[in-house]
Design a protein around this nucleic acid. Structure first.
Length: 281
DNA sequence: ATGGTTGGGGGCCAA
């Protein structure tokens, strides 16, 4: 499907392609394959960025996705934990996976889309429980990872999209209670300050907040531990889609598909959907 | 203040 997007800089209509882009921490792609199937049927994404696939690269269900039209695949998996995968109907080129913090973790996969936009899919470390880098190496790793992302963002010189489970809820309205979560990993000042610095490092546009005001609660994750996640609604916005400033005018819509959180044996994360007109030239 | 749930993998850990 092609569309036209008005480019405010050049005052011209430029050819573009409308794409539905999704980021979803599935918490094991094999355990959740029926939910992925249902989600694909209902929402028809063009590009599906998964995190926590929890499978080695060579055991990823490639043919399952190929049968559903996602013939272009960029996968970085590892045994047990982590792992990211980008499944696409659009061609993926220049696939690369960087080794962040030299840990050898599968937490990043990048690919170039038609038209030249680079798509980065991240799974940022969760950071453990104790928000003190001196006593908790997991938290130190998370802060170091975010610092590395800030430095990397400053060097970006191409139209880019960054999606994934960033494991930080940056704004007060990204958590159910700002006051009660200030000392809870995912919303502590060292994390939210880094998210702000990360945003500034490339002038990233938060595609979710482009459609929802900053003071309006917006969540993508609800703990498994709540008796009734929807009734208590103690959510956090840990999943994000950020785009380069030059792509901002292409943003067409956004939703958090929280229906999937209430399905049988769900992930604790809901898919985040963004519709965007990608430049074709 | 505490505990609540889940998946992977192989006997608890990370989330």
């Amino acid at each position: 499907m092609t569309a036209s997007a008005y480019d405010t800089a050049s005052k011209a209509y430029r050819p573009s392609k409308r794409a539905r882009l999704v980021t979803w921490n599935v918490n094991s792609v094999r355990a959740r394959i029926d939910l992925v199937d249902r989600f694909i049927s209902l929402q028809d994404p063009d590009i599906l960025c998964l995190q926590e696939i929890k499978v080695q690269t060579d055991q990823f269900p490639r043919s399952w996705f190929e049968e559903r039209g996602y013939v272009h695949q960029a996968i970085a998996g590892q045994r047990n934990h982590h792992g990211v995968a980008t499944l696409s109907r659009l061609p993926l080129e220049e696939i690369e996976s960087a080794d962040w913090c030299q840990k050898g973790d599968a937490r990043h996969i990048a690919a170039r889309l038609p038209g030249g936009v680079k798509l980065h899919n991240f799974y940022v470390p969760a950071g453990g429980d104790e928000p003190d880098r001196e006593v908790n190496p997991r938290f130190a790793h998370k802060l170091d990872f975010l610092d590395e992302m800030i430095g990397w963002s400053k060097t970006l010189d191409e139209p880019s999209i960054m999606v994934g489970d960033l494991n930080v809820a940056p704004l007060e309205s990204d958590v159910w209670s700002h006051r009660q979560l200030l000392k809870v990993v995912s919303h502590t000042p060292p994390e939210t300050e880094r998210m702000h610095a990360l945003q500034k490092a490339h002038d990233w546009v938060d595609a979710m907040r482009h459609f929802v005001a900053d003071d309006e609660p917006l969540f993508s994750w609800w703990s498994y531990r709540a008796r009734d996640w929807r009734a208590s609604n103690r959510g956090r916005r840990l999943d994000h889609i950020w785009v380069s400033p030059c792509l901002k005018d292409g943003l067409r819509g956004m939703s958090v598909f929280d229906d999937a959180r209430s399905w049988d044996r769900p992930s604790d994360h809901a898919p985040v959907i963004v519709d965007i007109d990608l430049p074709l030239s």
